[in-house]
Design a protein around this nucleic acid. Structure first.
Length: 443
DNA sequence: TTTTGAGTTGTTCGA
DNA sequence: GTCGAACAACTCAAA
């Protein structure tokens, strides 16, 4: 750039897991600032590198949403979003050369990697006299906002949820009208986005769920949520909450008005985010050290059968096949397959957690780790170790018309179907013994 | 400081 | 067939 030429002065809004123009807190704050706002998104090679699959549907989803944002900006403001494929620090280095930047605005992200990354970016920007401004957007209450009276984190869900709900009463859930101020976006020549192929990713054949919340159905959520055959028994909003294509304030507003049970699920989401924030080691290690000595079986062959949905237990297999084929699994079945892996097969929750991470479109690290540890009995406020789901009983209870199982395991009644890979009673006793005998005594 | 009540989602056994 | 207890104590949170 010519030294005489003045660099454009602006602020940056960095999209991450908040891919919407509407009710976006950080974007709203950026647009309220004095400078025009340049929206950017960064595909971080460190994150992409973790994905094993060249057609990871989540990358496709992000890409699709970025295109929608871009089209919307071009249409309304003749502006566009800039997309980068590089390490965040290098991207900001480059941007600082090109523009006279005052501040970078973004929304808070509480995952261990994100915190580390944002800390580095902040230090870098500050070393150049700029600032990184972070706003709370993906939760109603951040990890330090709902604490016990002694200022330490809650470790039990129910008192946490009571405290959370009490705080919600005086909480304003009105949307931040970011979409009304898009005229403050920095105008530049529209650029067309690169394609997925530039990322060496290609299209999957997975279809994405819509983000509509059906209020009349949510009213029945408490009664319908345990039946995987019902398409709208649950909200199916996880993917949109993960990538911020829906606002959590909107969800909580709808939940408050329509379903206390669903509101509780949204509180679980924040409970586990809070837990992972305060106890980052729980991402990889058991939360309760009492259970750190369980002799997990490292049986690749048994694990493979579980992954492929060939355990011989119809409801378990239906769930696993639904997951691999669609990127989704009904919550009731998630609990069952998790219990089956940890208890019946005595395989570490961590193996299951990684498999879910790879396949779930709605994969949320905190919830995934929290719920797997819950199923294994090793987590915060977890299921007691002796609670072992009976896969046949669960089938009778929650898929009484055999509709869900027949959809995913059509051969389950025929001779072609595999024998149960392990006898329930045998597995149950083995698990009870393994947990009981390997509990660390208290010091 | 001590006490007390409670704690996501189950299953099995025996009276 | 129904129902409460056992599964196993322990820890958390608040009074």
């Amino acid at each position: 750039m010519n030294a005489c030429q003045k660099k454009p002065r602006l602020n940056i809004f960095w999209f991450r897991r908040d891919l919407r123009l509407k009710d976006n807190k950080g974007l709203y704050e950026a647009l309220m600032g004095e400078m025009p706002v340049l929206p950017i998104f960064i595909f971080d090679p460190l994150i992409l590198g973790r994905l094993e699959n060249a057609s990871d549907a989540r990358v496709e989803f992000i890409f699709k949403k970025l295109q929608e944002i871009n089209e919307s900006l071009q249409e309304k403001q003749k502006a566009s979003i800039q997309i980068f494929f590089d390490e965040p620090l290098k991207v900001f280095e480059k941007l600082l050369k090109e523009y006279e930047i005052q501040s970078v605005y973004t929304n808070e992200d509480y995952e261990p990697y994100a915190l580390l990354r944002d800390g580095k970016v902040q230090a870098f920007l500050e070393s150049k006299g700029k600032s990184l401004k972070r706003f709370k957007d993906q939760v109603i209450f951040g990890p330090d906002e709902v604490l016990k009276s002694d200022s330490t984190p809650y470790l039990v869900f129910t008192p946490f949820s009571k405290s959370w709900k009490k705080k919600l009463k005086s909480k304003d859930l009105d949307p931040h009208r970011s979409e009304d101020h898009l005229d403050h976006v920095y105008k530049q020549k529209p650029t067309s986005l690169q394609s997925l192929k530039d990322l060496s990713f290609h299209k999957s054949n997975i279809s994405f769920p819509g983000k509509s919340l059906y209020k009349s159905r949510l009213k029945e959520y408490g009664e319908t949520r345990n039946f995987p055959a019902l398409e709208h028994g649950t909200s199916r909003i996880g993917l949109h909450l993960r990538f911020g294509t829906v606002s959590v304030r909107h969800c909580v507003q709808v939940a408050r008005e329509n379903s206390k049970d669903w509101l509780n699920e949204l509180i679980w989401r924040e409970f586990f985010m809070m837990i992972l924030f305060h106890f980052p080691h729980s991402e990889n290690e058991v939360f309760k050290s009492t259970y750190s000595k369980i002799p997990w079986r490292e049986d690749q062959e048994d694990f493979r059968r579980w992954c492929e949905g060939k355990t011989g237990y119809p409801l378990v297999d239906a769930g696993m096949r639904e997951l691999v084929q669609t990127g989704y699994m009904h919550n009731r079945v998630r609990m069952l397959v998790a219990s089956f892996l940890c208890k019946h097969l005595l395989i570490s929750w961590k193996w299951g957690e990684r498999f879910f991470a790879k396949h779930l479109l709605d994969f949320e690290l905190a919830s995934n780790v929290g719920n797997w540890q819950w199923a294994a009995g090793t987590g915060v406020d977890a299921a007691p170790y002796f609670r072992i789901f009976n896969p046949s009983t669960q089938f009778k209870k929650f898929d009484p018309d055999e509709e869900y199982v027949t959809q995913w395991v059509p051969e389950w009644k025929s001779e072609k179907y595999v024998e149960p890979m392990v006898d329930h009673e045998f597995a149950r006793r083995r698990a009870l013994k393994a947990y009981k005998e390997n509990m660390e005594s208290k010091k």
